[in-house]
Nucleic acid binder design. Sequence first.
DNA 1: CAATAGATCATCT
DNA 2: GATGATCTATTGC
Length: 168
Amino acid sequence: MGKILVHGKTAGRIVETEAYLGVDDRAAHAWRGITNRTRLLFGPPGHAYVYFIYGMYECLNFVAEEEGKAGCVLIRAIEPVAGIGLMWRRRPAAKRVEDLGSGPGKLTLALGITRRQNGADLTRGSLHVRQLLEEPDMRIEVTPRVGIRHCADWPLRFLIAGNPFVSR
DNA sequence: CAATAGATCATCT
DNA sequence: GATGATCTATTGC
């Protein structure tokens, strides 16, 4: 949370995330164990897991657990920081700056992230995360996750309190 | 404002 | 063959 997600000429501050656990979390893709799609989730941390959903959208996750153990973080919203003109072109439906990246499907569009980035190493390369030298103060709010059926009450959604760029 | 339908396909049963 | 970690446009109040 609060870190800068960079892809090419565009960048945004991560303001909302959700945690997906491993085989004990029925809402997680890794729940059923290793399949072609979920293999990455059981691999080393610090890599991107990008999946296609609802026949239309792609969602970006960071693999977050040590190798052999599944667990990841879904990036749910970003606050645009750089390359905002390009983001507008990639998100013609957006009416306000707040709409550019305020949802998991929106931010991948705004940042130009697709399944091509699946498996990308987030510590180097055109898709990576940066730490600000001085992080502004923020309070992190915790709520249940959005849009799932199983484990719907687990408090695993995190957002920066009061930030206008979180999803609706 | 809230509720809802439709778009559309990879993945797993 | 059904489902889904979503978004948008449209409807109705």
